[in-house]
C-alpha cells in the first residue's frame, strides 16, 4: 500500500497529514498489518488538549493492544466515530482512515517528524529486512 510522500510519520507508527493548521492522524499500513484484525479503537474526546509524544488512545486487535501517541501537540477537533462500528476500516485502508483531527499548536512542529522515505528506512531496520 505504501506511505504517501505528503504525510509525516512517527517511530510509533502514526501518520499525520496537515492541511493549514489542522492535522489528521492515523496509523500506518505497517502498524495495521502488524496488529492484524482490529477490533476496537479507543478514541480521544473532542476538545482534549494533546501533547506531542503522549498517549491519546489505544487500538486493539484480536491478538494485542497498542497505545496511540500524538505525533505533535494540539487540541482535538474531530474524532472518527465510524471506527466505533467498523474498526476494521483501518485494516482495509490505513492511509486514508484518520482517527482524529487536531488543531495544531505549532504547525511547523510536523517538520521534525519522519518523511515517508525516513519512515520506510526505519521500519525496514526494525524488521531486519
Amino acid at each position: 500500500m505504501g506511505y504517501p510522500a505528503e504525510y509525516k510519520y512517527t517511530k510509533e507508527h502514526e501518520w499525520i497529514s496537515v492541511d493549514g493548521t489542522v492535522g489528521s492522524v492515523g496509523i500506518t499500513d505497517y502498524a495495521q498489518s502488524s496488529l492484524g484484525d482490529i477490533v476496537f479503537v479507543e478514541l480521544p474526546k473532542v476538545g482534549d488538549a494533546l501533547e506531542a509524544g503522549k498517549i491519546f488512545g489505544s487500538i486493539e486487535s484480536v491478538k494485542s493492544v497498542s497505545d496511540l501517541y500524538s505525533p505533535v501537540s494540539g487540541s482535538v477537533t474531530a474524532v472518527n466515530e465510524t471506527l466505533d462500528g467498523a474498526p476494521e476500516t483501518i485494516n482495509a485502508d490505513a492511509n486514508t482512515t484518520w482517527i482524529m483531527k487536531l488543531e495544531l499548536t505549532d504547525p511547523s512542529a510536523v517538520n521534525a517528524l519522519l518523511s515517508a522515505a525516513d519512515y520506510e528506512a526505519f521500519i525496514s531496520e526494525e524488521t531486519g529486512h
Partner: peptide, 8 residues
C-alpha cells in the same frame, strides 16, 4: 505462520 489472510 501466525496468520495468512487474517486471524478472524
Amino acid at each position: 505462520p501466525v496468520e495468512y489472510s487474517g486471524l478472524i
